[in-house]
Design a protein around this nucleic acid. Sequence first.
DNA 1: CTTATAAAGGAGTATATACACATATTTTCA
DNA 2: TGAAAATATGTGTATATACTCCTTTATAAG
Lengths: 153, 153
Amino acid sequence: MSDQAKFQKTADFLCCMDCIGFNLRKANRAVSQLYDEMLRPTGIRGTQYSLLVVLKIVGPVLVTELAEKIVMDRTTLSRNLEVMEKQGLVSVTPGEDRRTRKVMITEMGSAVLSDAYPLWQRAQAKIRESMGEERLQSLMADLSALIEISQVD
Amino acid sequence: MSDQAKFQKTADFLCCMDCIGFNLRKANRAVSQLYDEMLRPTGIRGTQYSLLVVLKIVGPVLVTELAEKIVMDRTTLSRNLEVMEKQGLVSVTPGEDRRTRKVMITEMGSAVLSDAYPLWQRAQAKIRESMGEERLQSLMADLSALIEISQVD
DNA sequence: CTTATAAAGGAGTATATACACATATTTTCA
DNA sequence: TGAAAATATGTGTATATACTCCTTTATAAG
């Protein structure tokens, strides 16, 4: 190993294939495509479906509150909501505090959500049946742990 | 439950919080931010780091080949490579088959990769130490299984 | 050998993501 | 009370992602 430029051999990077980020992104791409494909007849994507679900459950909520709840950058959420507002799925109104904006699901959003629910179930069931309940719970716990660890910063 | 519009009660959607896609995206956001933050001094992101690693290991490769290898849409990869080519990290040259384009890491790409390696290690170690080796292996296996399941379509 | 089909890739469009910076309010505190 | 700090949000910019449609080139069928 006299060549300084080759101090890092190709083989040294083999361990990088076990990168958590890389493998998480990879799985995310594949899984998101599965949900998106199932939801296609409804015109919404997986991200939008999840947002509608959260809004349905928690009710009217401020943007920053919601962003923290779903571990999403505030500005990312804003941009996503912007699209959904144009589509009539959510409404954004001024909050009591004049700095804030209150987000809620619309009637139309609720209707689309109801249509999407059985399609979402199909995607969810496909994974659940292949993985098994126990393994799925373990995976969910691991994902929560990852968030915990990554956010400590 | 006489109201047809409320056939789907709010509580019915509680199970949707266990959506694999939702939780995977959430974890992906958190973890990607961790790697991106660690890699910031190098000027590249986690996605670019992983691409450089793969290119370093597999050598010159066609776009579609590479896309399949890393479970990434062909057009997504193209767009990512476009940015990296402008930055001088990779080179894209015509293949023997005149339809194809051959991608490879540049000297500069290799240099940046070597600089990034210890920073990547720090991020990887942070997660590894918190999760434990055994749990990490289980997670990796689960992510592989998810890809397997989602791609069967 | 010509035509039909398949394969590889590019371009247009749209959503998803997040950082840095700027603006508008509210709250705190001297 | 009035200035400073904190809070909530918007904007500009850039990467990441993927679908649809299109062009170029190679291969297969007749």
